[in-house]
Every structure is written in C-alpha cells, then in structure tokens.
Amino acid sequence: MRFRNNLLGIRIKGVKTFRHNRPLRVMHWVLAPAALSLMASGLYINKPYRNFLFKNMNDARKTHFMAQYFFGLYFLARGYYAIKTRGYRKLFPNSGDIASLPKFSLYELYLNKKQPKYPKYNPLQKLLFIFFAVLFPLQIVTGSALYSTGRLQFLSRPFGGLGNTRTVHYLGAVGLMSLVAGHMYFALTESFSKLKSIFNGYFTPK
C-alpha cells in the first residue's frame, strides 16, 4: 500500500508521498514524444522548408503518421484507464475546484503570496485537462479524415469538406501547442519535487 499522505486534507511535510502510478507514467511518456513529434512534423507539413527539422516532406509525413498511431493508442488507453479506475473524477474540476479557482489565479498572478496546495491537480491543471479531453478527439477525428481521405471521408462531412477539416485540424493543433507550452512551463518551474514524480512516481512536500 503506497502512502498517499492525505488525511482528510492534511498533508505531512518532508515525507515521501506517492503521486503517479506506473500506468499513468508510462502513458504520459508515450504521449509526450508522440505529441512533440506530431507538433514538429505538423508544423513542417503546414509550412515546409527544406532541411529544417526534416529532410523533406516524405520524412515529415512518415513521422506524423507514425506518431499519430501512438497518440491514438495513448488516447484509447488513457480513456479506458480513466473510466476503469474512475480516475476522471480527479481529472476534471468539480464545484470545489471552481470555487477555489479565483484563489489559485490570484496566486499565479502574483497578487497573493501564499500558495494554495491541492491533493493532486490544481484547478488550472483540471481546466487544461478539459481542453485536452475536447481537443484530443477533435484532432484524432480531423487527422483521420485527412489521413485516409477516401475511406474516412464521412469524418470530414460534419466539418463541411476536407478543406475545412484541415483548417479545423490546424487551429486545434495551434490551441494544443499553446496549452502544451503552458503545461511544460509550469511543470518545469512550479516544483522540482513534483516534476520528479512523473519519472519515479513520488514527491516530497516541502
């Protein structure tokens, strides 16, 4: 039994605390390289410049198509895991998180010095997961329509054709890239101890 260090909302400082279990960490590290590869190759496909990041369009497309399978597998696995373990309750904001959002926002805007602590994810992270939950399937659907243009043509119909589907895919990618950039910034600057937990599963509250 791993020590989660949360007794009705009281946490002891200086104690090694369990944060991310192995399946979640594995899934995260499947997603991270896949998403970064998709972003890099997607940007090249959108605006190809020779010998920048990729040798040519063929390489960029192959990278994109290979990474998309990992991304799709991640999404299916993560969705299954969230439902099976009922982990979605911790992923998305509840009424308490929404009530706590102003307090957390004041801290992040440097208007309040005291950092509010949360059991696992803070309200902004949970908002981020809502965007992910919407944008991931959107990217998978629009990407599939663009990948198999003939066989999966029905997927482009709700968007009004393949041209519109491509625009939606691009705008969805732009939104995701901004969110991922924000996520990486906060992950790298918020707490080194918590950053460690995505590698080994544990962190030590200080």
């Binding site: 949360n6 009705l8 909302g9 009281i10 946490r11 002891i12 400082k13 200086g14 509840n94 308490g96 998180d97 009530a99 706590s100 307090k103 957390f104 509010p116 602590k117 949360y118 059991p119 030590t204 509250p205 200080k206």
Partner: peptide
Amino acid sequence: PPGTGFELLETTPA
C-alpha cells in the same frame, strides 16, 4: 532538505 510540519490541502474536508 524538506522541513517538517503540515500543510492544508484545498478542496478537502479539512
């Protein structure tokens, strides 16, 4: 090194 003490977690019964 980490200090000692307790911290109160938001959105919890405490």
